[in-house]
Amino acid sequence: MKISRRATLTTSILLAGGLALTGCSSPAAPADGGSSTSQEAPAKGGALTQDNFAQRIADAQFAAGSVHMSMQMGDSVEGSIEADMVIDKDPKKIQMQMTMDQAGVKGDIRLVDGKMYMNMGPLSGDKFFDMSTMPGGAGDIGAILDQVNPGSQVEGFGDALTDFVADPNGPEIDGVKTTQLTLTLDTRKMFEAQGPQEGVDIDTLVSTLGESMVYDMFIGSDDLPRRIVMPNVGGMGTGTQEYTKWGEPVKIEAPAKDQIADASALQG
């Protein structure tokens, strides 16, 4: 079975975009385990404000250098996505392994040394495709890597933000007191700030998602995200991203040569 290049790259962009959002925007929702007795989260750099939150969160992630993320895509989508990521200001040094098991489809996507490898189980013959070997693939991978970089989202993001609310008495998550940021974003400006993405039509996105999107982001006193809860989009239900293991060692390896298939099979 052939997989179209557009479909696979669009999937990759959307998955990687979930990580990129941690550098600029964020989702919201009540946090499990939250406590009404939580005290104000002490901020090491003072209060998070509309003017400083994006840069501070990006800087904190660069300083941490790595993270583990668990993502639930929505109430109507069974399964989850798990990812380990090495964060670096140089997009070519970013590394990530993302595994997904949703609706009976299993996948393993890896970003290593500026290359992206994708294994979609039976859809790819249980082999990895080196996406950079496809016509134009290297440029597309470069764009994806740049978007995964949290710092790349800072520039131009301010134009998409139409409302900002910071509650220093956010819920406690995994023993960490948080500040809850509620952000309202202009949908069109948010996606335009990410740059052109093959197969992604912004007009269609705006029509589907609405003119604005509201997120809540839960930030620890170290300026690192602990949870993002995405709004209900397309009736799929809310999506939740949990961030743990900040700064812990992460080792991601490229697939073995005998596990990499001819990427020409993707064209169609």
Results as ranks from 00 to 15, higher is better:
A64F: 02
G65K: 06
S66P: 01
V67L: 03
M69D: 05
S70L: 13
M71S: 08
M73A: 14
M73I: 13
D75R: 14
V77H: 06
G79P: 04
S80P: 01
S80L: 02
I81H: 01
I81D: 04
M85L: 02
V86P: 02
I87V: 15
D88H: 12
D88P: 04
K89N: 15
D90A: 08
P91M: 03
I94T: 10
Q95G: 12
M96A: 15
M98V: 14
M98Q: 12
A103H: 12
V105C: 09
R110S: 11
V112T: 11
V112P: 01
G114T: 00
K115E: 15
K115H: 15
M116A: 05
M116H: 01
M118Y: 14
N119E: 12
G121H: 04
G121K: 11
S124Q: 03
S124F: 12
S124W: 11
S124C: 15
S124D: 09
G125H: 11
K127Y: 11
F128T: 07
F129I: 15
M131A: 06
S132H: 02
T133S: 02
G136S: 14
A138M: 10
A138R: 03
G139A: 12
D140Y: 01
I144M: 04
I144Q: 14
V148S: 07
P150K: 15
P150M: 07
P150I: 12
S152K: 06
S152G: 08
Q153V: 06
E155K: 13
E155F: 01
F157R: 04
A160H: 07
D163W: 06
F164L: 07
V165M: 08
V165S: 05
V165R: 08
V165Q: 05
A166Y: 04
A166Q: 14
P168Y: 12
P168N: 15
N169W: 00
G170Y: 01
P171C: 08
I173E: 00
D174E: 15
G175M: 10
G175Q: 01
T178D: 01
Q180H: 12
L181I: 05
L181H: 05
T184K: 14
T187V: 04
R188S: 07
M190Q: 05
M190L: 15
M190W: 10
E192L: 13
A193D: 04
A193H: 10
Q194S: 13
Q194P: 03
G195S: 03
P196Q: 02
P196Y: 10
P196V: 08
P196L: 05
Q197W: 10
E198K: 14
E198G: 14
E198P: 01
E198R: 14
V200I: 12
I202P: 01
T204I: 13
T204H: 06
L205D: 07
